[in-house]
């Protein structure tokens, strides 16, 4: 979706504020949000692409106003409701509805630690023919899906060169909508800074993006 999350190349966002001796969390609740999100992934009600898309669905003004962990929390609550783990009424009251089913088996801290350490790999060990090879000239598709995509706007329609093939990965555009994994090759694609930004950019510079096969066409 052409959302405000896709901010590569935007102006007016202000100075970069780097904090000296920054703590890992600025408040204990931030750590709780991170832990909740990581641990609750164990129920497999969603996947990494669903979680990213849910954050993108935070309305633009809110997205920019909220802190990172606030956005993550808002998106997390939406996922809980959409996946049927809790109802909106339960969220509002803070009390489980009478007779509501409990998710089993219980997720214990020990199990959560193992699951978090293991992660959820998105690389797939399947044989898929790559459409491109290193050195091929390609164009990023000019596409504007209303759903999730990892093809940033600033690269769409632009010419690049395949730098290397990373192998086969789950396709976020379908996976984020529970439409299947559609595993395909991901390439590192090199775009000259001038192709992306015109003459204001240095002729020496470039931006590398990782792109799925479906984002590319032969140029």
């Amino acid at each position: 979706m052409n959302g405000v999350h896709d901010m590569g190349g935007m102006h007016g966002m202000g100075p970069i504020l780097a904090e000296k001796n920054e703590p890992v969390f600025h408040a204990p609740w931030e750590g709780r949000v991170l832990a909740l999100r990581r641990a609750m992934a164990a129920w497999r009600k969603w996947n990494i692409d669903v979680t990213r898309h849910e954050v993108e669905l935070v309305p633009p003004a809110e997205y920019l106003r909220l802190s990172y962990y606030e956005r993550q929390f808002v998106a997390f609550l939406e996922m809980l409701v959409k996946s049927g783990l809790v109802t909106r009424a339960e969220l509002e009251s803070g009390i489980p509805a009478q007779g509501s089913a409990k998710a089993t088996p219980t997720l214990t801290p020990e199990k959560a630690a193992v699951l978090v350490a293991r992660g959820v790999p998105t690389r797939r060990d399947v044989l898929v023919t790559p459409r491109f090879r290193g050195g091929d000239h390609v164009r990023a598709r000019n596409m504007h899906p209303v759903g999730h995509t990892r093809l940033p706007r600033y690269a769409r329609g632009k010419l690049g060169v395949i730098d290397r093939d990373h192998g086969v990965f789950v396709f976020p555009d379908t996976n984020a909508h529970f439409l299947g994994e559609k595993p395909q090759h991901v390439y590192s694609v090199r775009f000259a800074a001038r192709e992306l930004w015109g003459q204001q950019a240095s002729p020496r510079d470039s931006v590398f993006l990782d792109m799925w096969d479906d984002y590319l066409e032969t140029a």
Binding site: T122, L151, H166, D210
Partner: peptide, 9 residues
């Protein structure tokens, strides 16, 4: 300058 935009995994 080479910028790496982490768009995949």
């Amino acid at each position: 300058v080479r910028v790496w935009d982490s768009t995949a995994e």
